[in-house]
Amino acid sequence: MLPLASDTRLPRYQQLRDHLLAQIANNRWHPGEAIPTEAALATEFDLSVGTVRKAIDALVAEGVLERQQGRGTFIRRPQFQSSLFRFFRFEAVNGERVVPMSRILGMNVVAAPSAVAQALGLAPAADVIHLQRLRLLDAQPVLAEDIWLPRQPFKLLLETDLDSKGPLLYPIYEQVCGQVVAAAEETLTAEAVDQVHGRLLQVPAGSPIVVIERLARDYAGKPLEWRRSRGHAQHFRYRIDIR
């Protein structure tokens, strides 16, 4: 039997849920990997299978785990790239969706601006890594991104050639730093582009652009990344199914 790191006033299934979530966040199991069976977990924690099942059910409902018929229960790997196409239409000539190429313009350690420190839950002016990235479609800039990361968990990125590892950052966070993005919150606004980002996007200052702010978290809810993406209004789209 292992002690459950949780508030002992909570029901046992809730304590187990909290304990399993902490272990997932600490990479005991990796995204896409199966967790032990309910019977094995019941033995490990000296709990009934019914109690274990309630804890697993809670994590499935929260989207942390997913059950696969006949195979077991797995750590769910979120698919964040779909959000790019929810707000922007990036297509090849034949109409096929394409992921814009990525070009890192700069990566520096800076003192966190107040909004960044607040979003990431850091002390004022704490060290953060600031990434500036341009996304291109057919060699034309379509997104300009400012990305901030807590320095300590992501310090290995400072020694990494990000452009050589492809256009998606979250797999790089996982492979290089062991940091897994499990969920994110996005806010969408519109604004007139300033001169700096107008030059990056190759549009006149004052042109309308769409701004998406994203706060990404790990499985335990800890903030990992805050980014602001500015995109051409001509590529913007919004779709929702109402039933």
Rank of each mutant, 00 (worst) to 15 (best):
residue 175 Q to H: 15
residue 175 Q to L: 10
residue 175 Q to Y: 09
residue 175 Q to D: 12
residue 176 V to T: 08
residue 176 V to S: 09
residue 177 C to F: 06
residue 177 C to G: 05
residue 178 G to C: 13
residue 178 G to Q: 09
residue 178 G to N: 01
residue 178 G to R: 02
residue 179 Q to N: 14
residue 179 Q to T: 03
residue 180 V to T: 15
residue 180 V to W: 02
residue 181 V to H: 12
residue 181 V to P: 08
residue 181 V to R: 04
residue 181 V to E: 07
residue 182 A to S: 14
residue 182 A to Q: 00
residue 183 A to G: 10
residue 183 A to I: 01
residue 184 A to L: 12
residue 184 A to T: 11
residue 185 E to I: 10
residue 185 E to Q: 15
residue 185 E to D: 15
residue 186 E to T: 11
residue 186 E to C: 07
residue 186 E to A: 08
residue 186 E to L: 04
residue 187 T to I: 07
residue 187 T to C: 07
residue 189 T to N: 09
residue 189 T to L: 06
residue 190 A to I: 06
residue 191 E to Y: 00
residue 191 E to I: 05
residue 191 E to M: 09
residue 192 A to T: 09
residue 192 A to I: 02
residue 193 V to E: 00
residue 193 V to Q: 01
residue 194 D to M: 12
residue 194 D to S: 13
residue 195 Q to C: 15
residue 195 Q to S: 13
residue 196 V to W: 08
residue 196 V to C: 01
residue 196 V to S: 10
residue 197 H to P: 05
residue 197 H to W: 07
residue 197 H to E: 13
residue 197 H to M: 10
residue 198 G to C: 02
residue 198 G to D: 05
residue 199 R to G: 00
residue 199 R to E: 03
residue 200 L to K: 13
residue 201 L to V: 07
residue 201 L to H: 01
residue 201 L to Q: 09
residue 202 Q to R: 15
residue 203 V to R: 01
residue 203 V to D: 02
residue 203 V to S: 05
residue 203 V to N: 05
residue 204 P to Q: 00
residue 204 P to E: 03
residue 204 P to I: 03
residue 204 P to F: 01
residue 204 P to N: 09
residue 205 A to Y: 01
residue 205 A to F: 12
residue 205 A to E: 14
residue 206 G to V: 00
residue 206 G to K: 03
residue 207 S to F: 06
residue 208 P to R: 09
residue 208 P to S: 06
residue 208 P to L: 00
residue 208 P to W: 02
residue 209 I to S: 07
residue 209 I to P: 06
residue 209 I to R: 02
residue 210 V to K: 09
residue 210 V to H: 04
residue 210 V to I: 14
residue 210 V to P: 03
residue 211 V to R: 12
residue 211 V to D: 05
residue 211 V to I: 06
residue 211 V to G: 01
residue 212 I to D: 10
residue 212 I to F: 14
residue 212 I to C: 13
residue 213 E to D: 15
residue 213 E to Y: 12
residue 213 E to K: 15
residue 214 R to L: 04
residue 214 R to E: 03
residue 215 L to Y: 08
residue 215 L to F: 12
residue 215 L to M: 09
residue 216 A to D: 08
residue 217 R to H: 14
residue 217 R to C: 11
residue 217 R to M: 10
residue 217 R to L: 12
residue 218 D to T: 10
residue 218 D to G: 13
residue 218 D to H: 14
residue 219 Y to P: 03
residue 219 Y to L: 11
residue 219 Y to V: 07
residue 220 A to E: 11
residue 220 A to H: 08
residue 220 A to S: 06
residue 221 G to K: 05
residue 221 G to D: 11
residue 221 G to Q: 11
residue 222 K to Q: 15
residue 223 P to R: 04
residue 224 L to N: 03
residue 224 L to Q: 11
residue 224 L to T: 07
residue 225 E to I: 02
residue 225 E to R: 10
residue 225 E to D: 09
residue 225 E to N: 03
residue 226 W to G: 00
residue 226 W to Y: 06
residue 226 W to N: 03
residue 227 R to T: 13
residue 227 R to E: 12
residue 227 R to Q: 06
residue 227 R to K: 13
residue 228 R to T: 13
residue 228 R to M: 08
residue 229 S to K: 00
residue 229 S to C: 12
residue 229 S to M: 00
residue 229 S to H: 02
